[in-house]
Amino acid sequence: MRRLREHGLAVSFTALLVGALVGEAFAGRADYNDQAADAGLPVLGMLQYLTSAHFAADVAENWQSEYLQFTVFILLTVWLVQRGSPESKPLDKAGAESDEEQKVGPHATRDSPAWARLGGWRTRVYSHSLGLVMTLFFLGSWLAQFVAGRAAYNADQLKDLQAPLGWGEYALAPDFWNRTLQNWQSEFLAVASMVVLSIYLRERGSPESKPVGEPHDSTGVEG
């Protein structure tokens, strides 16, 4: 029970992810089948829908934008600061910071991760491992959106008695960029809202907020 409490965030968000995916599967299949039945075309069973390009494209287009949001946030907050926001470092800390502040090489402690202690390429790689892995997840899910999105788009083209698009044509197609950019804009809006609103508003007890009584211009202070 203590173990579960100590991992409450990861467990809860994984459960929410699974619940939302299950809901998306049922709603997405019903929507797909409504349209197919109207057109006199074959409807899909649940397994067929879960392995379809339509489901894969819908999932991947949201995943890529979420990974992009957090990747950009992680990387930009190294260099950019925001006065008054708990999402920002203190104003004089912009940049990669010193080895001492980052506890790498000779400044590592006994409990530091091994690659932070070792120095050389391993410490350089480990120093950027979060950004690197998040970037790979973003690129992987964006590629998955591209591949599945083209297959789903071409299936719809064929239903409408239109010619399917090749890879190059789909890379320039409005469908690909509309799917991509409509998700990006909402992610950037959410980050901008959180960065700015957290200057003036509080959520007592949340580490994403400053303490309730903290002045508006305090920067880099979390509750």
């Binding site: 075309l41 071409n154 299936a155 064929l158 399917p164």
Partner: peptide, 23 residues
């Protein structure tokens, strides 16, 4: 012939046919 999901297009030298995969 190109297939996407349950839909296909078959191109002949003098015709084009669209198909769908039913049960």
């Amino acid at each position: 012939v190109e297939v996407y999901g349950t839909n296909a297009i078959a191109r002949f030298d003098a015709d084009t046919v669209f198909l769908a995969r039913f049960r």
